[in-house]
Design a binder for these strands. Structure first.
Lengths: 335, 335
DNA sequence: CTGTTAGCGCATTCAT
DNA sequence: ATGAATGCGCTAACAG
């Protein structure tokens, strides 16, 4: 069963292939009448333009690569699915790769995507310093790239970021306003800009309310790391009144340990997470957390990329900062 | 910065393009010496064969489509990532689509993928009866398809499935052996083969141990549904001694409600989930659950597809049944 | 408004 | 063992 080609349609109607082509790319002059006839006949014959041939002649792959660190948290799948919707609508094909939290894998992914001739990239970096030369090269070659979530200051490119500073500030202030004196911040890796921004928000909230800034403990984004941090606090007899965690998984890991040791959440220890996860509403107590606009992030990144793709060359890199929401739940509220 | 083409390499070495082509597809006679020289020079020039041109001439897209119902549970991302690894290794490009639990979306995804001329498909169905005609058509046209997880009996195709019967049996038997008398099964949707298989396993375990088969309550795969079912049992004063749930989310939803109402897990109600999730180890109490071999599923599906791709035509559809593991944890063990 | 022509980059058949 | 020629399906420049 051979695929119907443009020739079959042309032959059938005794027109030239270019006329058929015009009908399908309605940008050249073509009589409305013939155009409709062609479209109609094409449909009857089951003709669909061969995207591969089109790509070859147009010298564009219509492939977009997306690279993310992991798929463990729902954050990245959520962002990706939204971005994909937008891109597919515009006729792009989306290739998704995850780097498994390894910069080497990230580089390999990058190369796989380049081999597949992607026209553009949407990337969340593993580490802001690794592979940076490679990205610079690509950027210099005018490869459209939009970074999001984990971005590198050193890269002059389009970025879609969350206002980590502001929302860390709000989350911290929320804890302060609830009357918690002694707040510990379980911070994400310090090599990430977003960790630093959140730390700054954490500090600012303290300053605003004239408190001493609470302890900042480097942690990570996994339940294990959250649990480990909690265990350490307990062992060291340094359990604070409240904890603000790098993300929900980390918060939940810590929460679990505290509960195991008989601490009541939030009476003994209040907890706030970050980046609303699917679990936040479902654990006990339900978790107060900052919700990131995953949909918006995906859509915005995709749109920025499309803009670049369409105005290749004359395009000014811009950074778009998105807003979030604090979902206050049981884990941080004592009545 | 134009991409180096096969011509550039040929010109540089004063050989013909066909010789270069041969060097890169080492299947024709070519002197080892010239071949090496060509490969070496090609690398120097930064030449990489244009996959699009290759696809056009070979009449293959090297695109593989993967369609899954959702990305909420970690199950599908896990399977996909493994399948993708295998496929990319073989030079395929993977297009991932999720159906959002809607058969219409599934159909749209299917068409998007077909537009992109996928050479093959890996699919987990939304409903076993929907879109079945479409799949039959594709299968009749010799489109290589591998179904997994949610498959349709009516489709004569390659399938990779989990032994739901056996592992539901083991899970149930585990509860029986722990001494729980009265076991309720929160079943997944009855239109799914896998739900029925699990029910059969549930029943068989009861028969083997000469018990009356416990109640089977149709539920679903979400936390909400699990919670709802639990609430209903409590209201109706029909709380069983043990619950076997359709999946971990469902189990956790139910667990939460029971805990809220002061039930102790596992003393008052024991709970077993299905399809090991990231949460199982991290909630309290930790959840006993059946682990599915997600990696194997992904790898097997990919390999089956590759086999079909390579032996197109003379290929006998086969069903591969994979084994799992019961991870016994606190939620089902009373000491 | 439409047809003719060329060619995107490559694999492959047919010569040699 | 290698080169020349052909064409995959399509778009676009050029003619008319």
């Amino acid at each position: 069963m051979k695929r119907t080609t443009i020739k079959d349609v042309a032959k059938k109607l005794n027109v030239s292939v270019s006329t058929v082509s015009r009908a399908f790319n309605n940008k050249y002059d073509i009589k409305e009448e013939t155009k409709e006839l062609i479209i109609k006949t094409a449909k009857e014959l089951g003709y669909r333009p061969n995207p591969i041939a089109r790509k070859l002649i147009q010298q564009r792959s219509y492939n977009i690569g997306i690279i993310v660190p992991e798929f463990v948290n729902s954050y990245f799948p959520d962002v990706i699915m939204e971005a994909q919707k937008v891109l597919i609508d515009k006729g792009y094909q989306v290739l998704i790769m995850q780097s498994n939290d390894s910069s080497e894998t990230e580089l390999k992914n990058l190369e796989t995507l380049l081999d597949n001739m992607v026209d553009g990239l949407i990337v969340s970096l593993i580490r802001e310093d690794d592979n940076i030369e490679k990205y610079k090269e690509l950027l210099d070659d005018k490869m459209p790239i939009v970074f999001f979530n984990r971005v590198a200051d050193k890269l002059d490119a389009c970025k879609v970021v969350f206002d980590d500073f502001k929302w860390a500030f709000f989350a911290t202030e929320h804890l302060i306003l609830q009357g918690y004196e002694d707040i510990v911040y379980l911070s994400g890796p310090k090599h990430m800009r977003l960790s630093l921004n959140r730390i700054m928000g954490f500090e600012k909230a303290h300053r605003k309310h004239r408190r001493d800034v609470g302890k900042i403990i480097p942690c990570g984004f996994s339940m294990e790391e959250g649990a480990k941090a909690a265990r350490q606090m307990i062992e060291n007899n340094q359990v604070p009144r409240a904890i603000f965690a790098a993300n929900d998984h980390c918060a939940i890991g810590a929460m679990r340990v505290f509960k195991e040791y008989g601490y009541n959440i939030p009476k003994d220890v209040a907890i706030v997470g970050f980046t609303e996860s699917r679990l936040a509403e479902h654990i006990h107590p339900t978790l107060t957390t900052v919700e990131q606009p995953t949909k918006d992030i995906g859509i915005t990144a995709a749109n920025l990329l499309i803009e670049q793709l369409e105005n290749k060359g004359m395009f000014v890199p811009q950074t778009i900062v998105l807003n979030g929401r604090l979902n206050v739940r049981e884990s941080s509220v004592t009545h």
